[in-house]
Amino acid sequence: MAERKINVKGETCPVPLVETRKAVRTAEPGDVLIIQGDHPPSKDEIPMAVDALGLELLGIEEDGKNWTIKIKIPAEV
Protein backbone atom coordinates (compact mmCIF):
# COMPACT_ATOMS: atom_id res chain seq x y z
CA MET A 1 0.00 0.00 0.00
CA ALA A 2 1.56 3.28 -1.07
CA GLU A 3 0.74 6.89 -1.66
CA ARG A 4 1.67 8.40 -5.00
CA LYS A 5 1.53 12.02 -6.13
CA ILE A 6 0.78 12.94 -9.75
CA ASN A 7 1.46 16.56 -10.59
CA VAL A 8 -0.48 17.75 -13.64
CA LYS A 9 -0.37 21.47 -12.89
CA GLY A 10 -0.17 23.49 -16.08
CA GLU A 11 -1.58 20.61 -18.13
CA THR A 12 -4.94 20.81 -19.89
CA CYS A 13 -7.48 18.23 -21.10
CA PRO A 14 -6.96 15.41 -21.73
CA VAL A 15 -3.46 15.16 -20.20
CA PRO A 16 -4.56 15.12 -16.49
CA LEU A 17 -6.96 12.28 -17.26
CA VAL A 18 -4.35 10.41 -19.31
CA GLU A 19 -1.81 10.69 -16.48
CA THR A 20 -4.42 9.54 -13.96
CA ARG A 21 -5.29 6.52 -16.07
CA LYS A 22 -1.60 5.69 -16.47
CA ALA A 23 -1.12 5.85 -12.67
CA VAL A 24 -4.22 3.69 -12.07
CA ARG A 25 -2.91 1.07 -14.49
CA THR A 26 0.37 0.70 -12.64
CA ALA A 27 -1.01 1.05 -9.09
CA GLU A 28 -1.39 -1.84 -6.63
CA PRO A 29 -4.64 -2.62 -4.77
CA GLY A 30 -4.91 -0.34 -1.73
CA ASP A 31 -2.68 2.38 -3.19
CA VAL A 32 -3.76 6.01 -2.86
CA LEU A 33 -3.23 8.37 -5.80
CA ILE A 34 -3.04 12.11 -5.15
CA ILE A 35 -3.58 14.09 -8.33
CA GLN A 36 -2.69 17.78 -8.22
CA GLY A 37 -3.81 20.07 -11.01
CA ASP A 38 -5.25 23.42 -12.00
CA HIS A 39 -7.25 22.79 -15.20
CA PRO A 40 -10.91 23.28 -14.16
CA PRO A 41 -12.61 20.72 -16.51
CA SER A 42 -10.21 17.99 -15.36
CA LYS A 43 -11.40 18.47 -11.77
CA ASP A 44 -14.84 17.30 -12.97
CA GLU A 45 -13.62 14.80 -15.52
CA ILE A 46 -11.34 12.77 -13.24
CA PRO A 47 -14.14 11.91 -10.73
CA MET A 48 -16.24 10.82 -13.74
CA ALA A 49 -13.46 8.40 -14.68
CA VAL A 50 -13.11 7.24 -11.06
CA ASP A 51 -16.78 6.32 -11.15
CA ALA A 52 -16.49 4.44 -14.48
CA LEU A 53 -13.44 2.49 -13.30
CA GLY A 54 -15.02 1.50 -9.97
CA LEU A 55 -12.36 3.29 -7.89
CA GLU A 56 -12.91 5.00 -4.56
CA LEU A 57 -12.97 8.81 -4.52
CA LEU A 58 -11.50 9.84 -1.15
CA GLY A 59 -11.97 13.55 -1.68
CA ILE A 60 -11.50 16.72 -3.70
CA GLU A 61 -9.79 19.74 -2.17
CA GLU A 62 -9.61 23.17 -3.73
CA ASP A 63 -7.15 25.96 -2.98
CA GLY A 64 -7.73 28.93 -5.23
CA LYS A 65 -7.29 27.70 -8.79
CA ASN A 66 -5.47 24.55 -7.67
CA TRP A 67 -7.23 21.31 -6.88
CA THR A 68 -6.23 17.96 -5.36
CA ILE A 69 -8.11 14.73 -5.99
CA LYS A 70 -7.49 11.65 -3.84
CA ILE A 71 -8.32 8.21 -5.23
CA LYS A 72 -8.01 4.81 -3.60
CA ILE A 73 -7.44 1.68 -5.69
CA PRO A 74 -9.83 -0.98 -4.36
CA ALA A 75 -8.80 -4.56 -3.68
CA GLU A 76 -9.92 -5.60 -7.16
CA VAL A 77 -10.25 -3.23 -10.11
Partner: peptide, 22 residues
Protein backbone atom coordinates in the same frame (compact mmCIF):
# COMPACT_ATOMS: atom_id res chain seq x y z
CA UNK B 1 -13.47 16.72 -27.39
CA UNK B 2 -13.00 13.44 -29.20
CA UNK B 3 -10.09 12.50 -26.99
CA UNK B 4 -12.16 12.85 -23.84
CA UNK B 5 -14.82 10.67 -25.44
CA UNK B 6 -12.33 7.96 -26.42
CA UNK B 7 -10.77 7.95 -22.95
CA UNK B 8 -14.10 7.70 -21.15
CA UNK B 9 -15.36 5.10 -23.62
CA UNK B 10 -12.20 3.09 -23.02
CA UNK B 11 -12.81 3.16 -19.27
CA UNK B 12 -16.22 1.64 -19.97
CA UNK B 13 -14.73 -1.04 -22.21
CA UNK B 14 -15.18 0.45 -25.69
CA UNK B 15 -12.36 1.02 -28.19
CA UNK B 16 -13.06 3.88 -30.58
CA UNK B 17 -10.75 6.44 -32.17
CA UNK B 18 -10.74 10.17 -32.77
CA UNK B 19 -9.51 12.55 -35.43
CA UNK B 20 -8.22 14.79 -32.72
CA UNK B 21 -4.55 14.65 -31.84
CA UNK B 22 -4.06 16.73 -28.71
Amino acid sequence: EGESITLHMDMRGFSVSTGSAC
